[in-house]
Design a protein around this nucleic acid. Sequence first.
DNA 1: ATCATATTGTGAAATTAATCCCTAAATGCC
DNA 2: GGCATTTAGGGATTAATTTCACAATATGAT
Lengths: 212, 212
Amino acid sequence: MDQDKIPQATAKRLPLYYRFLNNLSHQGKKRVSSKELSEAVKVDPATIRRDFSYFGALGKKGYGYNVEYLLGFFRKTLDQDELTEVALIGTGNLGTAFLHYNFLKNNNTKIVMAFDADSDKVGSDIGSVPVYHIDDLEEKMGWVSVAILTVPSDEAQAITNRLVDFGISGILNFTPARITVPSSIRVHHIDLAAELQSLVYFLKHYPLHSGS
Amino acid sequence: MDQDKIPQATAKRLPLYYRFLNNLSHQGKKRVSSKELSEAVKVDPATIRRDFSYFGALGKKGYGYNVEYLLGFFRKTLDQDELTEVALIGTGNLGTAFLHYNFLKNNNTKIVMAFDADSDKVGSDIGSVPVYHIDDLEEKMGWVSVAILTVPSDEAQAITNRLVDFGISGILNFTPARITVPSSIRVHHIDLAAELQSLVYFLKHYPLHSGS
DNA sequence: ATCATATTGTGAAATTAATCCCTAAATGCC
DNA sequence: GGCATTTAGGGATTAATTTCACAATATGAT
């Protein structure tokens, strides 16, 4: 779809840069160097400069980067001008937490509907988001092409299959299950228990003395 | 304290392998090949074999891996025999979700206490975990050396400073703030909004045709 | 206008991670 | 037992990412 070549590692950092540029802008800061930004986002300044350079020469030597210019550039690059609508499947504790989270604050992304099998929840709103019955998934989804999956893990694959049949483009999977999808569909896994276990493992086996 | 040399990328996958080996074991499966495991965890079989090989020759040629043996090996490697106690700071929606999550199921990790500033919550239990007042942090922490941070982002650094002064070892930071700590303390950031934005970015800019 | 200072952009090097692919070994069938 | 098949281990290669280090250039002070 566009300027290929941006390494995936760089692409993953873009939202982070974007958020901090927003912060700087709100603070009324006019310029920022890779060094300053580095301290804020905890990414090596050389890496920041390299990341930015994939998009061209965005800064000025001896000066740094103009905050508004850079912010505007990333707003376009990250498609922040168009709203991305997302559906959330599974309004358990974790799902409910997301429904109360205002993604719009920094990202032009909004959860516009939620699904659950619990008829007590169906019909109500959680965090101003309407909750529909999971049986009505296909009927209600409309143009939504991204789903956040926060269902019990033993239901993850069945729901995924329905999302796939419906024509979903991307799934953010918070269940511990590693779901199977056709190769044309993008899935990002966030495995909370594994993250915790991994942190504990690193603590025990990779003692730190410097750097992170 | 450890067999150095295990690449960080490998270390991050260990909890994943461990969980799926557990599943296989519960299913009564006796053996598993890197190919089968690959389909379950969505990691290339060569990568799995390479990962395992850092720990020695754990499998048998022409056979695969003995599930119980491998599971036992990883249980030891991941220190699953000793319970790791964790504190959670901030019982908002996300924090509450974690308090209801049973990390013990697959990981020998347990949230043993929670802290909040809201006096309505203090003194109660959430998901069987006692909630203390944030002012009593230092007094209550005891031997706990890992914290999950789910406070509002503008409080993240102040709480972090207190955790650092207390002598914390590791922090799992769910706030969008990139906290600053001495280099001897390990912090893992999980940035939920950034993950969602990143998924959307990949969808628009990295159309998939095969592989994930 | 000059010059000391700051800071980018990037080629090159280093590091880290993933994958290819072949050998050797174990299995299971006949 | 003999043999076709399966599958791990790991050397070598390739790919991806990070970091170094420096020339080029803009700034700001005087």
